[in-house]
Design a protein around this nucleic acid. Sequence first.
DNA 1: TAGATTGTTAATCGATTAACAATC
DNA 2: TAGATTGTTAATCGATTAACAATC
Lengths: 205, 205
Amino acid sequence: MPSSIPDIVISRLPVYLRALERLSHEGQEVTSSHELGKRLGISSAQIRKDLSHFGGFGKQGTGYRITYLKDQLRQVLNVERDWEVALIGAGDLGSAVARYRGFSNRGFHIACVFDSSPEKINKHLGEFVIQPLESMAAVIVERGIKIAMIAVPAESAQSVADTLIGAGVRAILNYAPINLNVPDNVHVQYIDPVIHLQRMTYYLE
Amino acid sequence: MPSSIPDIVISRLPVYLRALERLSHEGQEVTSSHELGKRLGISSAQIRKDLSHFGGFGKQGTGYRITYLKDQLRQVLNVERDWEVALIGAGDLGSAVARYRGFSNRGFHIACVFDSSPEKINKHLGEFVIQPLESMAAVIVERGIKIAMIAVPAESAQSVADTLIGAGVRAILNYAPINLNVPDNVHVQYIDPVIHLQRMTYYLE
DNA sequence: TAGATTGTTAATCGATTAACAATC
DNA sequence: TAGATTGTTAATCGATTAACAATC
């Protein structure tokens, strides 16, 4: 029963971690489930319950020491180490992702960038040299990369995903607005701004 | 009881709509809850249950006519009309969002772009002229804009949100990696790639 | 000690699934 | 008609919340 913890619990841990990073950035050293809950719009009971799946991180009467809880959550989430991530697609979106400064202090860094269009190959993108799609599988196997971000057009996303998975990638963050079919042992997350917008327009007017 | 439909149901409708658009793009005219469910990794019962909140859109024996179901979902989600969206922040991320071609055929278009840094004001960004943050409230009130996307640094996100809400914005898509405090009648959605990545590393190794 | 807050249990609440009559 | 698939009900499953003893 090593992994009987509900995925919905896992999905909240990074949010807790981000809030804790914010709090310590603001100079705070201790917090409580109530304070955290108020910031996040979540009940304090839920936060305590979620955390209790992994151990007793707090102290009655005083709450949680932020540095300690941060470390514990990082350990649970497996982001104490630094993960190499492959980026596929060097268009507008891919370029923005490549230049994004927010990965490095949160457990990730982009290791390589690939694109299919011949005129982009060997061009620089920030600190990276864009490599051809044909080299992708080999590079990923060689470096043992397990995480990839897909920022190619919807039409090519599935075939890129297939190649990635064949090369050993186990987690995909997909920016293309399309659902991917992947084996059970591969994880996929989606980022599609329109999905979020449409979810809100339901409530408007 | 106009809005007793669970938010979790609403959150799946845009995903259904996207899959239907894909199917009709592929030339298909009819689908079933089974086919849709298989594509999305969702049970067919859940799809039928979700849709049944809004009416009977299918036919026993044959399934759903795709064009019809698409239209119905667009109506439910309130994206038959076109929504004007304000974009705040013209850095790397904001620029990529501004250039993104995926909004227009799905119910949204960017109407104006704002940034705080003096050297960007009046510069062009794609088809837009970057306007100063000081004009933001006035422009949003005047145009009656209800939706905004925040792509500014975490430090300024909350104060930008406060101004937006004061100007009448009711839905915010926040790209800044920070939780926003907003009144109950304002909707917020978050896009933070690191949250998604951290959710997957839990399962790796 | 008095006050505060945890971790946990039990109760509540809500969402998903299974099953099937209705019907195209 | 036979086969397929819907919409819906009831049963199951799982997640959230309330409450409180333990204790800092």
